[in-house]
């Protein structure tokens, strides 16, 4: 890729003020997304995936703030933009699909109203045109009988349908960047596959870049071109999907992969008696990170050095980056 990336997140530091102390949430997160490509943002709950997304959208909850670093969309810094300028980008140039389709739609407005709202706001369509476009969008997300569904209220739709509506809403203004925050976590497995293939189809059609936030490496393998693994607010590993999945270099990435049955294990997953691995322990709560490598308390390979000092970013090959002492030592050896 020779062209400049659509989205560039550089050294992003986000902290939260809980009234007593200021705690770090994201600590130097860096990644970029090229036009028309998909980035998988991976990690357990509490690693900062959603906060990264909200920071990009400018929707961080109260008490959270970006301390340093930069977020550039199309070369323009989103952080130095005024709130109103940023608001105008939301829903038109960049938009977001949330995890919970059951609660993310407003129960008192029809889905047509909710899809059309962004169009009326950003493209100044009148009510009739917005409705027509809403029906087109419902058809695009493969909702049957869109002319009738457009007048439905969210409670009249199933979870999968609601998530399709969310996608229709997010894509209504043909954004350049779509952030999907665990879009299928709340849905049936069969519906998950449908939503992913729908996203792929729409991406091809519109050329939208996607950030797919998930803890499911299987989904990343299917959907993403690149992947960034977050752990405790830091980027543990990043690179092209093929490289990372073939050669996971961070112990955390390896741990996550061994937790995903349909990935890499191949037929072994289906063999009776094969036990699924787990990554021991839990993500540490905010503000209780290890002085050294944040993963070291859970790392099977950690030694005294890992516990003592934070590791540097190491480049493996052209495109893979790893945050691990072990890799550094291997390289030095």
């Amino acid at each position: 890729m020779s062209t400049a990336p659509l989205l560039e997140v550089t050294d992003l530091v986000v902290e939260v003020d809980n009234g007593k102390r200021i705690l770090p949430v994201l600590d130097g997160v860096t990644f970029s997304v090229d036009a028309g490509r998909t980035l998988g943002l991976v990690g357990e709950s509490g690693c900062g995936k959603s906060m990264t997304a909200l920071a990009i959208m400018g929707l961080l909850p109260q008490g959270f703030r970006v301390k340093s670093g930069d977020i550039k969309l199309d070369g323009k810094s989103l952080l130095s933009m005024g709130p109103d300028a940023l608001r105008k980008l939301r829903g038109s140039v960049m938009s977001m699909v949330f995890q919970e389709p059951m609660t993310s739609l407003n129960p008192v407005f029809t889905v047509g109203d909710q899809i059309g709202e962004a169009l009326r706001l950003h493209e100044h369509l009148n009510a009739a045109d917005a409705r027509t476009r809403a029906i087109e969008m419902l058809r695009a997300v493969q909702i049957p009988a869109p002319e009738e569904r457009v007048d439905n209220y969210p409670h009249q739709l199933s979870g999968g349908m609601r998530q399709r509506v969310m996608i229709a809403m997010a894509l209504a203004c043909r954004p350049r960047l779509l952030i999907c925050d665990e879009p299928t976590t709340a849905l049936d497995v069969t519906v998950q596959a449908q939503i992913f293939s729908l996203l792929e189809t729409l991406q091809k059609e519109m050329g939208t870049s996607i950030i797919l936030i998930t803890h499911d490496l299987g989904a990343v393998a299917e959907m993403a071109d690149d992947v960034a693994v977050l752990y405790a607010g830091k980027r543990a590993e990043a690179g092209p999907v093929a490289t990372i999945l073939d050669n996971p270099s961070h112990p955390y990435t390896r741990g996550l992969m061994s937790c995903t049955p349909r990935l890499r294990l191949g037929s072994a997953a289906l063999t009776p008696g094969h036990t699924l691995a787990e990554v021991r322990g839990m993500v540490p709560p905010l503000g209780q990170f290890e002085a050294g490598c944040r993963f070291s308390p859970r790392c099977p390979m950690a030694d005294a050095h890992c516990h003592a000092a934070p590791p540097p970013d190491v480049h493996l090959g052209a495109s893979q980056t790893v945050l691990c002492w072990k890799v550094t030592q291997e390289q030095a050896a």
Binding site: R87, K88, F98, N106, E117, L121
Partner: peptide
């Protein structure tokens, strides 16, 4: 504090519309 209020903000609606249209109706 509901999710759909965040959705309304993610759509780029101005804060007044978020509170008095999406919020107040509920």
């Amino acid at each position: 504090s509901q999710d759909y209020i965040r959705t309304a903000r993610a759509k780029g609606l101005p804060e007044g519309k978020v509170v008095y249209k999406h919020g107040l109706r509920n």
